[in-house]
Amino acid sequence: MTWSLRTEGLGKAFTLHLQGGSHIPVLRDVGLAVAPGECVALAGPSGAGKSTLMRCLYGNYGAGSGRILLRHGGEAVDLAAAEPRLVREIRRDTLGYVSQFLRVIPRVPTLDIVAEPLLARGVPREAARARAAALLARLNLPARLHGLPPATFSGGEQQRVNLARGFAPHYPVLLLDEPTASLDAGNRAVVIGLIAEAKARGAAIIGIFHDTEVRDQVADRLFEVAPMPDASPAPGAEAPAAA
């Protein structure tokens, strides 16, 4: 099978120096492969490490062992061993991530937040802003909000800004962490449509969907993340880590 992303023997554990050096294994020997145009939903009970896996796949958490292979610019690269500069390049061109929460950059207008990843790839400013505006409009964010920083937006509005930012650049690999959690039915349908279009473009999508209705509509298959035997919940398993 051809793949866009593939893990080999991926493992992750946390050592908490501030809590007596306790060692918490979360992932062991994860082997996941996603093909272009395929959407894989991570499944498993709460605390099994789905979010930890997502964060490892984005390079946000360092892999403890194993490899995370990505097709980047026609080559296979191992994200787990990549230098920071290469990780930045991969994130710019290949790998997108829609987290549950928007990390707000103070004072930057919504439109620029969405356009920024396009600008980073060299898309001309006007074209980038036009695409950003179209995507925000599709996600039912009124144009009068586009010029405002999203700090004061509601949770659902911020989520849609995050989604627009994630879908705008057409990443070949896209990670979605609860993309519809705070959305109403209408916007859920928009997101389902966006995912379908991304798949049609050949994007490989990995998602955590608690909303089974959405999951059933977009996912081609489930990937079971099994909880480690006698492991307490990982610190980063469900909620974002501190800071």
């Binding site: 946390f14 050592t15 946000n60 958490y61 360092g62 920071p84 990780v87 980063g236 880590a241």
Partner: peptide
């Protein structure tokens, strides 16, 4: 290392 990795997954 990468800023978000050092801050979110400090070793």
């Amino acid at each position: 290392g990468l800023t978000d990795r050092v801050l979110d997954d400090p070793q």
